[in-house]
Amino acid sequence: LPPVKSLLLGGSQVILGAQSYFGGLDAGNAPSCSNPQLSCHNTSVVEDLCCFNYPGGQMLQTQFWDTNPPTGPDDAWTIHGLWPDRCDGSYEANCDDSRAYHNIREILESFGATDLLSNMTMYWKDYKGNDESLWMHEWSKHGTCVSTLDPDCYSSYRSKEEVVDYFAAAVSLYTQRPTYQWLLDAGIEPSTSKSYTRDQIQTALSSRHGRPVTLGCKGGKLDEVWYHFEVRGSVQTGVFEAADPDGGKSTCPYSGIRYPPKAAKGGRPSPTATRTRTHVPEPTGPAFSGRGNLVAKTGGRSKGCIISGGSWYDTRSCARFHATQEGDGFSLESSKGKCAVVDGMFSCSSAVDKATVFTSKDESL
């Protein structure tokens, strides 16, 4: 591989910066709901279905952990969808064929939702490699069944704007439910040798979510998590409240659950050492804080990214780094440990005692 010219803080506007786009488009264009009721808790018929989600009153934010083939960043779960279940656990599907759009990317771009699209490209992944096919499926099957996203609910409706609001809501919920990190905080990490009990996994996630979650396993391997919500108001502007699952749907055994790493499949590519510039330009960018990815750039184009140990791969899933502001700069840490420049090489490991303080210039490290 050619030498690395710079490291970009990939997704900095999405993960490390403001997330205002997650609220969708112009909130004033969405339904105006005074004293909205919590879905699935009404005691009488609610006529205004622009402010009350019905019949799909329980919203499920669903996430994947795909290892065969490895899909998405190796230290993040990926988005499956946002599903409106009935309160009894059943659900409608494909509710409006006239709005079964096939050009999701084009729709998002037409509304200027480029940050949202970048986030989806990173985290809303199809294991077959056709992300937009998955987006189209989720919107057509589930998004068209959300009553508060009906075009008639908008005061000055712009064609297809409900599509943006659906994906914005799904991504916003996903970012607030970092499954990988929550499991890691509880000592549950991907492993080729360890196994876990269902209670261990359930406790790690439900203690953070606020209610039990649904766990999905195939062949004894953990591969899906569903977070259940009820909504006070519309999907666009309402409040999502954690809820108990609408029925027993977990498919994991009581014990012996495996949680394999994504890197276990497809072999391990040969790493290329990531070297920093010997001359550091004056910083002109922000001192980042929060979580994001490091994308390698060479020849003016992005090519691969940095994995958790600090090496550059052009075929491997991106790792997630945590940036902490340090004066005018910031330090970085991955799941492997603190990051530093050691003997001219960028490295992250538990052996690093003191992290290097980095600065940014034009979004480059």
Rank of each mutant, 00 (worst) to 15 (best):
V4G: 09
K5V: 00
L9S: 05
G10D: 02
S20T: 12
Y21M: 08
Y21E: 11
D26R: 14
S32V: 07
L38P: 01
C40M: 09
V46M: 15
L49D: 15
F52Q: 02
N53W: 01
G57W: 01
Q58E: 14
Q58I: 05
T67F: 06
N68I: 06
P73N: 03
A76F: 09
T78A: 08
I79C: 06
I79P: 01
D85L: 11
C87H: 13
D88H: 05
C95E: 10
C95Q: 08
S98H: 10
S98P: 01
S98L: 14
R99M: 10
H102G: 04
E109Y: 03
L116W: 10
N119P: 02
N119K: 15
Y123L: 15
K128C: 06
S133E: 15
W139C: 04
S159G: 04
S159F: 03
E161F: 05
V163M: 07
A168D: 10
S172P: 00
T175M: 15
L183F: 10
L184I: 02
D185Q: 13
A186N: 06
E189H: 14
T192N: 10
T192V: 04
Q202C: 01
G216K: 15
C217G: 04
K221S: 09
L222Q: 04
L222M: 02
V225W: 07
F229Q: 13
V231L: 15
S234Y: 03
V235W: 10
E241G: 00
A242D: 07
D244N: 13
D244I: 04
D244H: 12
G247K: 12
T251D: 04
T251P: 07
C252Y: 13
P253L: 07
P253T: 00
R258D: 03
R258G: 02
R258N: 08
A263Y: 10
S270N: 11
S270W: 10
T272C: 11
T272S: 13
T276W: 15
R277M: 12
T278M: 08
H279C: 04
P281H: 04
P283V: 01
P283E: 05
A287G: 00
F288E: 12
G290W: 08
G292M: 00
A296C: 05
K303Q: 09
I307T: 12
S308C: 09
S311F: 12
Y313Q: 10
R316Q: 07
F321L: 14
H322G: 02
T324R: 15
T324V: 10
Q325P: 03
E326C: 06
F330V: 04
L332I: 01
S334A: 09
K336N: 12
D343C: 00
S349P: 03
S349G: 07
A351V: 03
F358G: 00
S364W: 15
